[in-house]
Amino acid sequence: MNNSKKLIVSHAPHWHNGSSISAKNINIIFATFPALLIGLSYYGIPAVGVIALSIGCAMIAELLMNLAMKREISISDGSAALSGLLLGMLLPASAPWWLVVIGSFLVIVIGKQIFGGIGSNPLNPTLIGYAILMISWKGLLDYNEALLDYDLGFIMSYPLATLKHFGVSAITKYDMINLFMGKQSGGIGTTCGLGLLIGGFYLLLRGFIRWEISLSFLVGVYVSAFLFNISNPEGYASPLFHLLTGNIMLGAFFLATDDTTSPVNFIPMLIFGLGCGIMTVLIRNLGVYYDGVVFAILLMNITNPLLDKIYPKAIGKVVENA
């Protein structure tokens, strides 16, 4: 036998199920389509521009950082594209181009690359970028101000702003079904609860995100909003209203479930999700911001190393043989 080519030797196992980071990210991007397409159909070309620009700039930022830090080119794994896309989905369709560019660079550079790239960022990169924009250019990200020129045939005032400024009595004009179907103002891809739910279920079924986080997030929102609501029905909105408005659906299925910044064990995942949900409602009901999802998730991201201290006992560490 000709031994010109040597046999390949490596460590077991010699098999892999074929999953990869890029496949995972492409699937998550795919899962945003139902909600994203509805958003794009409402807002038209400007929204397409925002999304395209946010994805493109995020990828360019990643490439530039790869080159600057002399590291492996990592734009093909889809992680930068996904972070950019999620930022675009959070922004209003009217966001000026420079805002999108700055946001995308913040997402990649401050959110991810300065920590060492994929897998090393302690905080959700998309939310870091968005939070900086939100604090720096408040007016441009206020959906009521930003979407002033749009009339899409449904109530164009931002539901959460209405709630904050005019109280519970003012929100009776919102029909829950309309809110669920996406007939509300907000970020490009955040409004259609149904679309996000479809995308979220797809990811759950394919095993790309963990049900523990999504479910406990929604439960956290529902339970805490419910407690506020029954303690003072005039002062606080119903839990269903909370669930269907703002960024909660996007947060529960696409933002809180981000791999790197969420826990990996069962109990920590539940605590993390519940924490996100409860913090969101606390910020909405007691804080100054309309929506609390962004800061709630960022806050819970910080608790992550702590939550990591809770991990299950290995098999055989607890001997119970009766």
Partner: peptide, 28 residues
């Protein structure tokens, strides 16, 4: 058929923990 690709950083997806029959944390 031999996989020649290199490996990437851990993204903390937790899949390894889910499948570990000994309930270990292979990622960590």
């Amino acid at each position: 058929k031999v996989e020649k690709e290199g490996f990437r950083p851990c993204i903390r997806c937790g899949k390894c923990i889910l499948v570990c029959p000994m309930k270990l944390m292979p990622n960590t």
